[in-house]
Amino acid sequence: MTYLDFEKGLAEIEGKAEELRALARANSEMDVDQEALALDAKAAALLVELYKNLNPWRKCQVARHPDRPHCKDYVEGLFTEWTPLAGDRNFADDQAIMGGLARFDDRPVVVIGHEKGNDTKSRIERNFGMARPEGYRKAIRLMDLADRFNLPVITLVDTPGAYPGKGAEERGQAEAIARSTEKCLAIGVPLVSVVIGEGGSGGAVAFATADRLAMLEHSIYSVISPEGCASILWKDAEKMREAAEALKLTAQDLFALGICDRIIFEPVGGAQRDKDETISRVGEAIRGMLGEVDQMDRESRRAARRRKYLDMGSKSLVA
């Protein structure tokens, strides 16, 4: 378990309980049960307390937690017959984007998502979930495929942002993102999206422009990272707490603003403390969202999706 900085107190209590139990294992005459149980109870109470009202910066930390379930975990947990499809047919296969065919509740679907990786080797392979133009072009290709064969598209969003690299720029990072967003708005099949961790700016918009958007309770979706915003507006990247607060980037803020359609509650202590439960709740949400848009015909579904984005934030669009 990786503890976040604000979980230090919790780490100490849990550490103590663990120590006691280790001592008891080494020395059979020691009876530590009651003490250890008391510590467990204390830790559990503290965990509830800590996660009850996470401030925006702490939410960012939880959203980026390395032990959180990632795209690959959801693909394994929610789908059967997973058949990854690779490549953009122009340049490369971008490992930061997982994409392919699968079955969801016995129904064939197309799944597209950012994968961050879960150890040093896979993180490097996956480029920490930062896609290059090839990743977005692979996604465009898969959305076209879904549209042609009438398969719903499920996207899982978890990226710090699109990769800021030389080659990525030369091959048209901006254009690839713009076309991917355009494709999201052009297809007639259902498109539902879940922000499972970090929704980083344009790199997230390219997939999250959907009929329905759900966000995990401690996920974020923002125009810029708090650190980036702080270094531009505060001229000090260390002001990320203030920036996180000001940007209104939590699932709760986005729900209030009408950007996300539902919040998926996480187990106590965050998704990283109970992956299976989180994955199954995300599955429920996907099922629910698909149910809401399944019955529409292609044209009205697409028209409704476009209307949704044209009207987005309309409460605040006209003074």
Binding site: A178, T181, C184, L185, S201, G202, V205, T209, Y221, S222, V223, A246, L247, K248, L249, D253, L254, L257, I259, Y309, L310, M312, G313, S316
Partner: peptide
């Protein structure tokens, strides 16, 4: 304008 500015991309 936070997320509302980002939503001008799809809009």
């Amino acid at each position: 304008e936070g997320i509302l500015s980002l939503m001008q991309m799809p809009r």
